[in-house]
Structure formats: structure tokens, C-alpha cells
Amino acid sequence: DPDTRIPVINLEDGTRLVGEDAPKNKDLVEWLKLHPTYTVDM
């Protein structure tokens, strides 16, 4: 689902973004380019 929010984690300080704070699936690739310290939180 393009509107599903994907949890991400900041590799530098461990900050996790989940729920309403997390980027949407459809925006994920662009969002990660803009926030290079974050990666998808598995």
C-alpha cells in the first residue's frame, strides 16, 4: 500500500520514526535520499 508508513531508524543516534512520524511507502525512496543517516528499521 503506497500510504503504509515504513518505520525508519537513524544509524547515528538510534532515533526511530514510527507511525505518523514515519515516511509513507510511496515517499520512502525520496525521503531516504533527503535523510541519509536513516535506514529502514526491520
Rank of each mutant, 00 (worst) to 15 (best):
D1N: 14
D1A: 01
D1E: 00
D1S: 08
D1Y: 07
D1G: 00
P2M: 10
P2S: 13
P2Q: 15
P2V: 01
D3Q: 11
D3L: 11
D3T: 09
D3I: 03
D3G: 05
D3R: 08
T4P: 07
R5F: 04
R5K: 15
I6T: 03
I6V: 15
P7M: 07
P7A: 14
P7V: 08
V8C: 02
V8R: 02
V8G: 01
V8D: 03
V8S: 01
V8Q: 05
I9T: 13
I9V: 14
I9K: 12
I9C: 11
N10Q: 01
N10M: 02
N10D: 10
N10K: 06
N10V: 00
N10E: 01
N10L: 00
L11F: 13
L11A: 13
L11K: 13
D13L: 02
G14Q: 13
G14A: 11
G14R: 09
T15L: 12
T15V: 13
T15I: 10
R16S: 15
R16C: 15
L17I: 13
L17Y: 09
L17F: 09
L17Q: 11
V18D: 15
V18Y: 12
V18N: 12
V18R: 12
G19S: 04
G19Q: 04
G19H: 04
G19N: 08
E20G: 09
E20Q: 10
E20M: 08
E20W: 04
E20F: 06
E20L: 06
D21R: 07
D21H: 11
D21G: 08
D21F: 09
D21N: 12
D21S: 11
A22W: 00
A22F: 04
A22K: 02
A22C: 09
A22H: 07
A22Y: 00
P23C: 03
P23Y: 00
P23L: 01
P23K: 03
K24A: 13
K24D: 03
K24F: 04
K24I: 10
N25Y: 08
N25K: 14
N25A: 09
N25L: 08
K26E: 15
K26T: 06
K26Q: 12
K26W: 02
K26R: 12
K26A: 12
D27H: 08
D27L: 01
D27W: 02
L28F: 08
L28E: 05
L28C: 07
L28P: 02
L28Q: 00
L28K: 04
V29A: 15
V29S: 14
V29T: 15
V29D: 13
V29E: 14
E30R: 07
E30N: 12
E30V: 05
E30L: 03
E30F: 02
E30S: 13
E30W: 03
W31R: 06
W31Q: 02
W31K: 11
W31N: 08
W31L: 03
L32D: 06
L32F: 05
L32C: 06
L32H: 08
K33T: 04
K33F: 06
K33R: 14
K33V: 08
K33W: 07
K33L: 09
L34I: 05
L34S: 13
L34A: 15
H35P: 00
H35C: 00
P36Q: 04
P36L: 01
P36K: 06
T37Q: 07
T37F: 01
T37R: 12
T37G: 13
T37S: 12
T37H: 13
T37A: 10
Y38I: 00
Y38M: 09
Y38A: 04
T39N: 10
T39Y: 06
T39S: 12
T39K: 14
T39D: 11
T39R: 13
T39W: 00
V40I: 10
V40Q: 11
V40Y: 05
V40L: 05
V40R: 12
D41A: 05
D41Q: 04
M42V: 12
M42W: 04
M42A: 15
M42S: 15
